[in-house]
Design a protein around this nucleic acid. Structure first.
Lengths: 180, 180
DNA sequence: TCCTGTCCATACGCCGCCGTATGGAGTAGC
DNA sequence: GCTACTCCATACGGCGGCGTATGGACAGGA
């Protein structure tokens, strides 16, 4: 048993990086190997083929990164509104790039779409529980959840200027509106 | 002057179709030619190279398809709320596929991002004019515009179930909320 | 020390796509 | 019918990536 030199996880992380800034088409075996400073020899020892890597990338995205947001917002005690505020603050450009790439990917790959549905439903459940803490009407909870998650995601796919207002200023306004 | 057999516009349309359901990476010359029933011989008569096609695709997307939504909602006279309702109704899955692909594309191509900014600002201006017709406070107008456009786009990148409610039911609820 | 298991390098055949070159078809105008 | 213009077919060289095969290198355990 030699000390694993570049284990599966490194391939997967490199793959996720490539996915984030190039989409699934940018996840190619040989470029990945070059990025890791090795050749593809080792790749095919770990993975059956390219598709196997993509699947495992999705596995770790689903299993690991999804709960991370919830875990981070639950850290430290506070009320629902504060948790939601913290959740919004996590939507930094850097952190969601993989998410965005997966979402676009899901548009054309049913298997990916199915995973996305699982993930989004879990997130939605969490949102419902938080909004439900200070909103009584069930319809209203659902409306706010949909608006919140649409804003969270949609914002990164939209490029608008706000005249006199700064982007963060506008986001604060919207956030206040959703948490009222 | 022979009657143009497969003119530029056909290549562009085919390109947009490929873009819609495969992303920019799926816009390849030879597959496009096969889809049109010809060989790539004619392509390189019309276009300098693949990038030239992509540019012209973006041109027509920007020039043609963007005003279409506004034009459609302005057809027939009605008040701002009715126009906005009609605008929402246009967000059918089929119609926005090119839009979604371009948005993901813009994440990694600055030139595309710049075009997207122009487009979104024009749409945003239109939204502001409509919401401004029945909302007085400027901040509130901006909030509703941001929520509306985020919902319009974000919705297609999200896959959630709503328990007892149907998707259209939820969309109606949200819409009512935004138009109140 | 030898052996075994883990990981990498190298080389190979294959395929799909790019862009170019060249020689036509087919049609319109004269 | 000749010419000119538009579009297409074919063939070519090149590149980059896929997946396979094979032979190590390197470390731990016996």
């Amino acid at each position: 048993m030699a000390t694993t030199r570049t284990p599966r996880s490194e391939w997967i992380d490199a793959g996720l990086r490539a996915l984030a800034d190039g989409g699934p088409e940018a996840v190619r075996v040989e470029p990945l190997a070059r990025a890791l400073g090795v050749t593809k020899g080792g790749f095919y020892w770990h993975f059956k083929d390219r598709r196997a890597l993509l699947d495992e990338m999705l596995d770790t995205w689903e299993d690991r990164l999804v709960d991370e947001a919830i875990r981070l917002t639950e850290a430290g005690r506070s009320d629902a509104r504060a948790r939601l505020r913290r959740l919004f603050a996590l939507a930094t450009d850097e952190a969601v790039q993989v998410d965005l790439a997966v979402r676009d990917w899901a548009r054309r790959d049913p298997a990916v779409a199915q995973r996305l549905r699982r993930v989004d439903n879990r997130r939605m459940d969490y949102l419902r529980s938080q909004f439900g803490a200070f909103v009584d009407d069930g319809d209203e909870v659902e409306v706010r959840c949909v608006l919140a998650i649409s804003l969270w995601i949609g914002n990164h796919f939209i490029a608008v200027d706000h005249g006199g207002r700064s982007p963060t200023q506008v986001m604060r306004l919207v956030q206040r509106r959703l948490l009222a």
